[in-house]
Design a protein around this nucleic acid. Structure first.
Lengths: 141, 141
DNA sequence: AGCCAAAGTTTGTATATACAAACAAGCTGT
DNA sequence: ACAGCTTGTTTGTATATACAAACTTTGGCT
């Protein structure tokens, strides 16, 4: 059965969750080449662009809870892709050289993901949808 | 920080996940009066409308995996809101009388949820967004 | 100086969901 | 008739995420 045919196809709860799960699946595929989950990949990308970023800042940008960010960083640290350095009460996250080496592949994966999802929906409709989703998310904050 | 201001505010992965998590939170609040999580509530609603529905059919309508449906039913069974009866290789799910008694409250919660989320976004934009989300979800199936 | 409040981070624990494998029942072709 | 495929369901295990509580450091107030 298709989502558009479900009894709940007008329901925001249903639509938001169903879409998120399927997008997650597509994203997981897209990031398999670098052996990272999408969240880990996005976090690493941010750290590569702004070395020394703090967990709190990452949480804001990725709209994830601080504790989730801690867990993501832990895993990236295990994989030797980032390092943490504690400065007083704050923590700074830096990419390792291995992490830096991954940058081109990460960008390829991101591009792949965008390409795969863009070809499924009219680009303007997609843009409007993403904007609506972010706007509504903000109002739910 | 707001989702619309994030570095990733154009990214489908980011938008879909952020929105879904926040909608989930709102839904959790909306269904607190009946002490059920949103998924459990939606499942119970379906079973109330169509007693004897099979897990597989529930999975299709709710767009969840069969194993997730099993887990949801287990919990509703613990709470004595539904019963399972196995007929050969299929299973039929029926609401208990306690489950039936919950129907009016469930509908109130659903209405509350709709009301709370509708007042945040223009109703036509919302409709279009939900439709786009379902359509895209189908293409990602 | 000393203490309390605030801010940043981490830890313990819980929920939602899925995949893959196991299981069970029915169906098909020879 | 029965060996094997197919379908529906459940179980074992894993991931993503969050909340609440516990630290930790810093800065303000007295």
């Amino acid at each position: 059965m298709k989502a558009t045919e479900s009894k709940y196809n007008k329901c925001l709860y249903f639509a938001a969750n169903t879409l998120a799960r399927k997008v997650e699946k597509l994203a997981i595929e897209s990031w398999k080449p670098v052996k990272l989950s999408p969240s880990h990949a996005y976090l690493l990308l941010m750290v590569l662009e702004q070395p020394g970023l703090q967990p709190g800042c990452l949480a804001n940008h990725l709209q994830l809870s601080p504790s989730t960010i801690t867990r993501l960083i832990e895993k990236l640290e295990e994989k030797k892709l980032v390092t943490r350095s504690t400065e007083g009460k704050t923590t700074l996250v830096f990419p390792s050289s291995e992490g830096k080496a991954l940058l081109p592949s990460l960008k390829d994966c991101l591009e792949d993901f965008e390409k795969n999802s863009c070809c499924l929906i009219d680009i303007h409709e997609r843009e409007r949808m993403v904007f609506s989703m972010c706007t509504l998310a903000d109002k739910l904050a």
